[in-house]
């Protein structure tokens, strides 16, 4: 007798289907955070991801740095970093300028600058092919909690959805389940930036009378209590104004180039945790 006999009746499949249905129903409504068993699984398997991505990065780094234009590349990287920082700074200044023009004393912009940041390395991407998420090498032990904003020098990356002691999972703003309250920087028009599952986002709920044009910058509004105000979300690519629709159809190119995402910053602020629905007796 063996533990896994080769010939078993077909009912074994029913057991697995029922088991997975039980899992599905138990986890529905629980949110996306990992349970203790999942955390253990992540802690055990994420190092492989880390090792793999690390190895690839090292190999790629060696290839780029030593086999092709050592100085040019490094200088280019420095300049790019500088440009990104200047862009971010510029965005903040523009934001401050516009705020000053309005009722400056009513707004509190200090939250944009006074919050601590934590750098993390991207160690993996979504393995299902269905969602847009990343795994990072920082977790509960580093002070991370659910819904903390994830950014980089270019703009908003996403938010933390699952945390284990040493690793965390962040949902990208391009995921179809992501929604960030946004603001047209120039006209202050409101909208909800939603992911499409591709490399583009939609700015939903932009009213017909709202002033918006292609090339406009979209920043976070600060509402929703997850993202600080004034962070770059992206630029408007295309606007369609159909007469039979209630809102304008606005397509946005995210500020962050997700295909080249290697490091991110986590804003260590306790994000808004939605109230859980009361459990039925």
């Amino acid at each position: 007798m063996t533990i896994f006999p080769e010939h078993r009746p077909k009912w074994v499949f029913y057991i697995f289907v029922i088991l997975s249905l039980i899992l599905l129903s138990l986890s529905s409504g629980r949110g996306q955070d990992w349970n203790p068993a999942e955390k253990i699984a992540v802690e055990m398997t994420a190092p492989f991801q880390r090792f793999f991505v690390g190895t690839i990065s090292v190999v790629r780094g060696i290839w780029r740095d030593y086999f092709s234009l050592v100085e040019t590349r490094q200088e280019n990287l420095l300049l790019k970093k500088e440009i990104n920082l200047l862009k971010l700074e510029n965005s903040k200044y523009q934001e401050l300028l516009l705020a000053n023009q309005r009722l400056r004393n009513l707004l509190n912009f200090q939250e944009n600058t006074n919050e601590p940041l934590l750098a993390a390395r991207v160690i993996g991407w979504d393995s299902s092919g269905l969602f847009k998420s990343i795994m990072i090498d920082k977790g509960e032990n580093d002070g991370l909690t659910i819904n903390m904003p994830v950014v980089n020098s270019e703009g908003v990356v996403g938010r933390i959805v699952s945390v284990s002691p040493n690793y965390a999972q962040a949902l990208l703003i391009t995921d179809q389940n992501s929604a960030v309250d946004g603001l047209v920087q120039r006209s202050r028009g409101r909208g909800m930036l939603k992911g499409s599952g591709s490399n583009e986002c939609y700015l939903d709920y932009v009213i017909k009378t709202g002033e918006i044009k292609a090339g406009d910058t979209i920043v976070t509004s600060g509402l929703g209590r997850v993202f600080p105000k004034g962070l770059y979300l992206g630029k408007v690519r295309k606007i369609t104004d159909s007469p039979n629709k209630l809102f304008k159809d606005v397509r946005v190119i995210p500020a962050v180039e997700f295909s080249k995402l290697e490091e991110v910053l986590i804003i260590l602020r306790s994000g808004f945790v939605p109230l859980r629905e009361p459990e039925m007796p």
């Binding site: 078993r8 138990l26 529905s28 969602f131």
Partner: peptide, 26 residues
């Protein structure tokens, strides 16, 4: 003709995929 092994593999690899994807377990 290895039903049990295939079932086990499908179930546990599915669970592993669920863990690494931001979706419901199962």
């Amino acid at each position: 003709d290895q039903n049990f092994r295939a079932g086990c593999l499908a179930f546990f690899m599915g669970v592993l995929t669920d863990i690494f994807a931001p979706c419901q377990l199962g």
